[in-house]
Amino acid sequence: MLARSALRVPSRAIARQSLGKTATRASSTAAGAEFASSPFYLTITASLATAAAAGSAAWYYHLYGQEAFAMTPAEEGLHPAQYPWVHERFNKTFDHAALRRGFQVYREVCASCHSLNRVPWRSFVGVMHTVDEMKAMAEENEYDTEPNDEGELEKRPGKLSDYIPAPYKNDEAARAANGGALPPDLSLIIKGRHGGCNYVFSLLTGYPDEPPAGANVAAGMNFNPYFPGTGIAMARVLFDGVVEYEDGTPATTSQMAKDVVEFLNWSAEPEMDDRKKMGVKAITLLTGLFAISVWVKRYKWSPIKSRKIVYSPPIRPRR
């Protein structure tokens, strides 16, 4: 604004000077360019002022800008720490060896209570297991056949197209076996919980040896600060060495938690690797198109942008 208002007087002066030669008058922007540049000290002052404003705002945010929670931390659940998950980065895939270990943890530990209803045996093929491995694993389980000619259901060994069987027949059976608490299905657990991977990892590794003094733990419940309400029906399940990894990785609690969380993230987002790969293609293609569009726009507009605007006032007859 300042620059523009400063412009006004000189440009009018120029206009007055060149009143006589109408044909050669330049457009006002070109004529005003030298006046538009402000003194250097103004730029410095403005930059410093902006930096000071931004800096003080950042400092204030650092001091007081933390989110205010209306519920108590116990009701909300302790906020999980942010862990450096490699697979969450834009340019990284799942670690498929970790997925394989995580599936082992799921099978040997979690699967006794938690279902994984949305994941079929076929989806492991080519991701962390071979066809033969998965066929063998599927065949270990029995599934109902279609009704035969007599209308009876028979049992058959599992096929690749079958889904991982649930540990309980139905929700009621699951509740009955777990003191009234329903172990949630784990297929979407990473997407379906605030905090995702960080939350599940913190929950699995966050059981204290004994509840802190003053904590209210109901009968049959366990204390976990990360669980909303802190009372969780699931006890700590991961202990060092509870699983023996086939690749020889030391099965510490945090190693198992990390592997199973990554596996559960795969089961929630099996498309992630493909998605990111397609994303890189899309970005490459679109940035190319964007660049072309900028050049073409500039090419098409250059005659307009460089045209000269001339004002020819009506010539009054001289007296």
Binding site: L286, L289, F290, S293, V294, V296, K297, K300, W301
Partner: peptide
Amino acid sequence: FKDLVTIF
């Protein structure tokens, strides 16, 4: 062509 720039 100007619209295309922002579309991309």
